[in-house]
Nucleic acid binder design. Sequence first.
DNA 1: TTGTAGGCGTTATCAG
DNA 2: CTGATAACGCCTACAA
Lengths: 339, 339
Amino acid sequence: MQDQKRVTLKDVARETGLALSTVSNALAGKSLVKPETRAFVLATAERLGYRASIVARSLRAQRSFAFGVLIEDVANPSAAAFVRGVEDVAIGAGYTILLGNTDGDLERQVNAMRTLIDRQVDGLVLISQHLDDERVRSLLSKVPAVLVQRRDARVALDYVGSDNASGLNEALRYVWRIGHRRVGFVTGPLKSSSAQERLAAFRATAAELGFTDPESLIFEGRYSFETGLAAAGFFSSLPDMPSCIFGSNDLNALGLIQGLSERGIRVPRDVSVVGLDDIELAAIKAIDLTTIRLEKRAIGAAAAGLLLKRIDDPDQPMQTLILPTRLVVRGTTAPVDPS
Amino acid sequence: MQDQKRVTLKDVARETGLALSTVSNALAGKSLVKPETRAFVLATAERLGYRASIVARSLRAQRSFAFGVLIEDVANPSAAAFVRGVEDVAIGAGYTILLGNTDGDLERQVNAMRTLIDRQVDGLVLISQHLDDERVRSLLSKVPAVLVQRRDARVALDYVGSDNASGLNEALRYVWRIGHRRVGFVTGPLKSSSAQERLAAFRATAAELGFTDPESLIFEGRYSFETGLAAAGFFSSLPDMPSCIFGSNDLNALGLIQGLSERGIRVPRDVSVVGLDDIELAAIKAIDLTTIRLEKRAIGAAAAGLLLKRIDDPDQPMQTLILPTRLVVRGTTAPVDPS
DNA sequence: TTGTAGGCGTTATCAG
DNA sequence: CTGATAACGCCTACAA
C-alpha cells in the first residue's frame, strides 16, 4: 500500500550498464542510438516499471504540459460541459487539466490564477469573469490564455463564445411568426458580456421586427431559477402581460414557468416561454423547454484548440471563435391564441 | 502578452545581495533569519514579483501538493458535485486538483491513473470503477488513494460512500406506511458496488416488511434515463402492476415517469415513483420528485479529508465513511388509492 | 554511438 | 545568523 521508491533514469542506466544520456536518448527515440541498444533499454525500462517524472521534465523544460481551467463552479452543469470539452482535446494533445473553482469571487479567482501560474501551467482557459480587475488582467499577461463566453474590451485575448445574437434573432423571428407581438425578456447579470450580448440582441431584433414596447418588458436579473420566479411576479403584475417571455438561460426560463404556474398562468397556453442553453433535462417531457441550444462541450473543445495553437505560436494574431446556436422548438411555445 | 521570464530565488538573492539560502530561509519564515533581513527579503521579493515555482519545489520535495480526481464524466451532474466537494477541502489544504475523465473506459482510466502518478500527485480520489482490473489495483498501490461510491473486496483502501441501505430502508418503510405492497425496483449496472448495495437493500427491506413478490418486480438496467423508459415498458406490461416503483437514481426515476406517462399511467395517481440522488432540478415543480438524497458534495469533501489524513500518516488503519442519506418526500408519491 | 557535465528552481545540510 | 553546496530527475550540448 505504500509509495515504493520511484524508478528513475539512473536506475535504468545502472541496470543496463549504459550511461544516463544513452538511456534518455533511447527512451526519447532519438536516432543516435543503435536499434538494439534502444530495444534493450526499452525492455529494461519496462521491466523495472520506469516512468519519466513529469515534474522533473517540467522543471527542465520550463513548461508543465498542463492547462489550468478556471470556472465559477463545476457543479453547475453548463460549466461542467465546458470543462469536459476542454479536457477532450487537452488529453488528446498530452495535456492534463488543473481545475479551479472561483464561485464568482474575485479573491478566489486571483488566488486560483496565481496558484495555476505558480504551477507553470502552459495555458489558461478562463470561463469566468472579473476582467475588470487590474490584478486579473495583469495575471493574464503572464500566460497564454483563452477566454470563454465572457470577454472584455480591455483584454485582447483569444476568445470562444456562442452566437447569442443570431440565436436570439432566430428565436424571436420564430415567435413573431407564430403571432407573438408583446415579448418579455429576463436578463442575466449585466456585468457579464454574455448577458449584455443577449440583451442587446433582444433589443435589436425586437426593434427590427417591431415588437410592442420591448423596453418595458425587460426584467433584470441573474442566471438563476430564483430570477425566473421573480420575473414571473413582475410580468404577471403588468396590466398588459407579454404573450411570450425569453429567459437568458434555461434556469431563468424554468423559474419563470414555475412562477407563472403558481399564479395560475399556464405555459404555453397563456404565455410562451423560451430558454437559452439546452440543459440535459430540457428535453424530457416534464420540462419540454423550447430553447436556444448552446454547444458547450464544443465551445470548451474549441477553446482548448485555440490554446494549443497559441502555445505553439504565441505571436499569432488573436482569434475569436463564435460557435453557432440552434433553436430547439419544444412544448413551451405555442401560437398566440387568435381569440 | 508574452510569458516574461520568471523571477527566481536567484534573482531575489542578487537583488538583495544575500545568499540564495538566506533568501530561501527568510521566505520560508524560518526563525534562523534576523527579522530585519527577513523583512528586507520579503519586501524585495514582493517588489520583484517573486513567486516560488511549485514545479521546482515538487521535484525537491518529491511531492506535488496536488490531488488527482478520476471520474467517469464531469459533465454528469452528480460526478461534478463530488469533484466540487473534493476541491472544497483540497484548496483549503493548499492542494490543487488534477482532473481526469474516464468515460467508464478501462483503458482511459489506466492511462489517466498513469499520467496522474507520473505527475506525482500526492493522492488519488477515485470516483470510478474497474477495481477488478489487475493494472488498476497495482497502480492504486503506488499512491495514497480514496475510493468513492464504489468499492471492491479485493482493494483495502479508504472508502467514502453513502448509506444506501438505510436510505432505501427509510424510503421503503415510508411507502409501506402509505399503503404500498407491490413495489418495483429498477437497478443500476450490477457490476458497480453501489448498484449492488441498492438492490440488496431493496431485497432485504422488501423481505422484512413483507412486500408482495418483490423478486418478480426487479428490472435490471443502468443509471440512465433510457433505463427508466424501458422499465416503464416492462412494469406496465405486467398483469399486476406495482403501485410504486423505485429507481436506482433520479434519472431512472425520471425516465420511468416519462415512460409511464406515455402509456397513460399517471404519477402519482396510478403509480408512485421514488428516485435516489436528489439532483438539482428534482425540487422544481415540473419534476417534484420524491427521492433519497445523497450528499454528494459532502461525500467528495469527506474523501478529500480522508486523503489528507492518509497522506499525513500512510500507516494509519483504513477508514470507511458512510454518510447518511435523507428521504425527501415530494409529489411523485401518494397513498395507495383505498378503492 | 556513447559518456560527461551542467542546469532547471528549490530546500536541506552543514560549515563559517 | 548567514552562506556554500548538494540533491531532487530529466534533458541536451558537447566531448570522447
